[in-house]
Design a protein around this nucleic acid. Sequence first.
DNA 1: GATGAATGAGTATTCATTCAT
DNA 2: AATGAATGAATACTCATTCAT
Lengths: 175, 175, 175, 175
Amino acid sequence: MGDRRAKIADVALLLFIERGYHATSTRLIAQEACVSEGLIFRHYTNKEGLLKDLLAEGGQQMIFEIAGFISEHDPKVFISSIIDFFFDVSEELLGYWRLKAQLEWIKTVWEPEEWERILRDAVERVFRGMGYSKYELEAGLLLESLTGIRYGILRGSVEDVRELKALVKGKYKVI
Amino acid sequence: MGDRRAKIADVALLLFIERGYHATSTRLIAQEACVSEGLIFRHYTNKEGLLKDLLAEGGQQMIFEIAGFISEHDPKVFISSIIDFFFDVSEELLGYWRLKAQLEWIKTVWEPEEWERILRDAVERVFRGMGYSKYELEAGLLLESLTGIRYGILRGSVEDVRELKALVKGKYKVI
Amino acid sequence: MGDRRAKIADVALLLFIERGYHATSTRLIAQEACVSEGLIFRHYTNKEGLLKDLLAEGGQQMIFEIAGFISEHDPKVFISSIIDFFFDVSEELLGYWRLKAQLEWIKTVWEPEEWERILRDAVERVFRGMGYSKYELEAGLLLESLTGIRYGILRGSVEDVRELKALVKGKYKVI
Amino acid sequence: MGDRRAKIADVALLLFIERGYHATSTRLIAQEACVSEGLIFRHYTNKEGLLKDLLAEGGQQMIFEIAGFISEHDPKVFISSIIDFFFDVSEELLGYWRLKAQLEWIKTVWEPEEWERILRDAVERVFRGMGYSKYELEAGLLLESLTGIRYGILRGSVEDVRELKALVKGKYKVI
DNA sequence: GATGAATGAGTATTCATTCAT
DNA sequence: AATGAATGAATACTCATTCAT
């Protein structure tokens, strides 16, 4: 009953995160999703196809979230928003982040996702607008630092997320 | 000739990084190391044992590198050193970083390595010594940001490493 | 549109010949015939049932072709006709021949088809009528040789079919 | 104990003949050969590799058998020998013949084996030496007919092999 | 220490077939 | 008559690991 394809995707995301993509067998996915193993391959060409689908969907949601503040004109509001974006990991996208984090290190050459390029462009534009001469460097620093923090949050090594966010916003004088 | 065990370890590290731990077969390791597959299991109980050994050895080297600045009393020198530590990835430890990055996201519960605890303690101590009231938060911010930057360096998303380091040192007024 | 059953049969025959019976999936048949996979099993109980149907239909056509000369009384005309029959593979029966050739070697015990028995009986009768003492042997020689030639034609190892036919007819003095 | 690789090859040949290449699973081969399924793939890259090996080995034996009469100068002896070659299927090569017969019809484009080319060249040379103007045609007729007869023998449709051979030799006046 | 043949459990994927619609 | 989602068993092949030598 209902959408088995979605069920497969949900279960797969969960398992990929827990055990890693390679360590998760299609048999396990099928068992946990209560479907036959064959059904996975009717809905997705490949195990890799299933993975890519998961990543693509997450990427789309990411772009949607970013769209909310990307055209903000007030630099202070923009920077505050982007800090929120990295600190407040929505339940929905939590899986995507973890999956991405896991896969990023396997392929030798890393290719930024679309949303990452969009974000970097926007941050650079804002910093240039604020008169920074080294706006690219400043953008890089902000984004890499925020990414590091987000990884810390995902990993659980950041104890007080709210306070840390306040600290970062303070450094950028946007609170 | 000579130390086949070391050859196995070297090759394994390289392959684990390139293709991922799970996607690297012991057969491939043996082939690339020009030894028999059986020999791997004479030197290491397991494929997992080989992995753990690699991580442990890297961790030891990490502690050794940290030891160079951990007891530094001058806060400025200390902070400058820790920034150097994260920015200047020694050729030798590059593999360890990549391997760690890859594996960090598979286990659900993340356990900090010994060197990570040592480092955090030291940073907190220094910040407290400098009179920061929220020294733990400041330590967290520095470490997560630097980790993010290091990941950025590893994956190639930081264009000008030297300039970025100068920028960070400038922010902490240690240059 | 119209006769989907026939469409399935046509496509199946083609694919069985090209790729072999076992290497042809019902899915592929369905795709190429532009019908759903399920429909195959409405019209034929089995994949094997489909195969048997194809063979049976070919066998019937074979009998029909043979009927044209089987009751010929003049031995010269009869022999000439049977040589024509083996040399001039009608477009329609080409698929049947190929399919038969392919399957003949899989079952350990080979059972001659009805048309093969009819043919052998007729040839033996004619040779006996011509006064051959070893008419069975002569019939066997003619039929096995012609079968060999037909296989040669099918696989393309006979370069000049027309000339070879003339040669054979000459040997039997029926030209 | 002993040569498991040879055991695998023997069993595989037998099964391929009985049930057909595609209908024979590697699992079955392993079971019948009393080895693990994995071992097949240590000795042969592929199931197809195993098949090719079988065919290649048979082809080599074929060339060896042909070598016995290929340089015969007396046309009568040569023709007599080649007829023997097709009529007296050695126990050892029986499997090869059946396997070849089975596979010949699956691939669309048929490529003659080395021994087939050697044989055809030799027969043409002999017929030319005998003064036949259409020596190529005569060679083709002999070879295709003999192939047909051999298939008949393999299939069991030739009742008295010895007598048929005498009949053929008589036609070519080599007895 | 070192080999390489051997294994058995496991892998992703495909198969013919069924069945509710 | 016709579909297409769904299945479970089977497929070729790979894996980490063992063990006699």
